[in-house]
């Protein structure tokens, strides 16, 4: 059984083509945790991490298969199970917070998906896209059934894009800087203040508006905390 378990460490977890590099399993888990926190704290839906999710799933399934061959009550196996549970927790929490945002902002999420240029990567995974479409359809049917059909004819339609609030990109977020950034423009809060620029030094932590640093979140230069 020692062989069965050590095999897992040699497994490089497939490729992460986003960055064109091969991640070791520990790096993979670190990426997942970063994505989890970013998704948790950003006001809008971030781009999907399907490949990352798939790689982690692959690792988990592989490890679980190995564990099936191990007899119950084995110390080593119980440690592996605990680790699997921890990773699964992060993974589900990550996917769940994406679904919550989709439910909350579905018309805007779908609109963004529609207006995306052909070559650009999609913000939604295929499963999430199907979920969003179905959610929209169901909401419309439900609204019609319970309310709209009882309304006067001129009030029987509702524009979902206007009816559902947009994500507020002006929210403040806490962040930690991973790669030094210069000249980040900070817009003033009131009219009698002037805008100014700040440098974000590596390792420093800040509180500022999401809109200002949104591109840095997707490039991975800052981590939301």
């Amino acid at each position: 059984m020692a062989d069965a378990l050590s095999e897992a460490s040699d497994l490089s977890g497939g490729e992460e083509s986003q960055d064109e590099d091969v991640l070791t399993p520990p790096e993979l888990i670190a990426r997942l945790e970063e994505a989890w926190l970013n998704e948790k704290f950003s006001p809008e839906l971030l781009e999907n991490k399907s490949e990352l999710v798939e790689c982690v799933m692959e690792q988990l399934t592989h490890m679980e298969e190995n564990l099936q061959r191990v007899k119950k009550g084995d110390l080593k196996a119980s440690i592996h199970r605990m680790e699997i549970d921890r990773i699964r927790f992060v993974l589900s929490s990550f996917l769940r917070s994406r679904l919550q945002k989709i439910e909350k902002f579905f018309p805007h999420v779908l609109e963004k998906e529609k207006s995306r240029a052909d070559g650009d990567p999609s913000f939604l995974s295929p499963e999430e896209f199907a979920f969003a479409k179905e959610y929209l359809a169901n909401t419309e049917v439900y609204l019609k059934a319970v309310a709209l059909r009882h309304m006067p004819p001129n009030l029987q339609s509702v524009d979902m894009l206007k009816a559902v609030p947009e994500p507020c990109l002006d929210s403040f977020v806490f962040l930690r800087v991973k790669e030094r950034q210069e000249n980040i423009l900070v817009e003033p809060e009131t009219d009698d203040q002037r805008d100014y620029v700040v440098d974000l030094e590596e390792g420093s932590q800040h509180l500022m508006r999401y809109r200002t640093i949104a591109p840095l979140v997707s490039s991975g230069a800052v981590q939301l905390i």
């Binding site: 806490f174 900070v186 817009e187 003033p188 809060e189 009131t190 203040q193 700040v198 390792g203 420093s204 932590q205 800040h206 509180l207 500022m208 508006r209 905390i225």
Partner: peptide
């Protein structure tokens, strides 16, 4: 004071995640 002075940016080094 952040709210009183209507600041748009604050640096928070040394603050831990639990504190935030």
């Amino acid at each position: 004071s952040f709210i009183n002075q209507q600041e748009a940016h604050a640096r928070l080094d040394n603050l831990t995640l639990m504190e935030i």
